[in-house]
Simulated assay, not measured.
Amino acid sequence: MSAAATPTWDPAQYLRHAGHRARPFTDLLARVPDLPGERPRIADLGCGPGNVTALLAERWPTAHITGYDNSAEMLDQAHVQHEGPSAGGGRLGFAHADVRTWTPEEPYDLIVSNATLQWVPGHADRFAHWVQGLRPGGTFAFQVPGNFDAPSHRLMRDLARRHGLADTLRHRDAVLAPRDYLTGLTGLGCSADVWETTYVHLLSGEDPVLDWVKGTGLRPVLTALADDPEARDAFLDDYRDALRAAYPAGPHGTPFPFRRIFAVARKEA
């Protein structure tokens, strides 16, 4: 298994930009249609610290919701901060699972994934299993980053090669083009809505783009260098300088364009 597939996660670092990171999930949920069950069964694949999984309980307060993740650190945070009954009589819980192999063991009304599938090689091959696990009229919805050609990630790849860490990153085929997602989902008999959006986040603080990627895309590199602080600091110094040039601060903060790809697929009722 590659280092890119098993990064060590830091919930506190991830949540430093929680507001910006949650925005795409709320936009995704806005396009999810009504669910077939009165007490829906919902799975959140790659739930992380559970902060956006909790938004599912706000939208469907009678639902039985399970957030799945393979990071013990993230699940610990989710259990403490978000697990328990919801206002409408539903329940929010969390469990360990590997999205690469997870298969529904019962019918679901909604299977959703937020900024996770880019970590799963060949994730589109799993779609048939997940759609099969939906109730008639159920929905599979996800969003993934589409910014692997942005300066933040190009610079990350270039520096990883220079520092002998090229194998830690898997960017080239991390996600598909929107048209390919549309073709795959409609080929499974779903009606599909696929789109892309570029957010321009206005980040505050010193070196905010570096701070952002330290919570997500840079995790494989940080994991690989965890036992070599000197090499880690050398990498971060080079990367910091490059990001400052690529994303100069403005008078009100640092603009950070971030492209994302969305898909909502509804199984025929």
Rank of each mutant, 00 (worst) to 15 (best):
P104D: 03
D44T: 06
N114S: 15
P121E: 09
A141I: 10
P104V: 04
P24M: 08
Y108R: 00
R240F: 08
L56D: 01
Q81S: 15
Y239G: 02
W102M: 05
V175H: 08
T66P: 01
L159M: 11
F258R: 00
F262C: 06
R219I: 08
H201C: 11
W119V: 03
A224R: 08
W9H: 12
F235R: 00
P36H: 10
K214N: 06
V213E: 02
Q143F: 12
P257D: 04
R161Y: 14
T116Q: 02
R259T: 15
H82Q: 11
G217F: 01
G90I: 04
L243T: 04
R59N: 02
L210F: 07
G187Q: 02
A97S: 07
R135K: 12
G253E: 09
D167S: 15
L117W: 03
L202P: 04
G89H: 06
R154H: 08
P248T: 10
G48V: 03
R219K: 12
H79F: 12
A3P: 10
C47Q: 02
L202S: 14
A18M: 11
P208I: 03
D149T: 15
V213Y: 03
E38D: 12
A160C: 08
A246Y: 05
R162T: 14
A150W: 07
R126V: 04
P104S: 06
A18W: 03
G37I: 00
E268F: 14
H64N: 13
C190N: 03
L202Q: 12
T139D: 02
V200L: 05
R41F: 12
Y199I: 05
T8A: 14
L155D: 00
P24A: 05
A57H: 04
A224H: 05
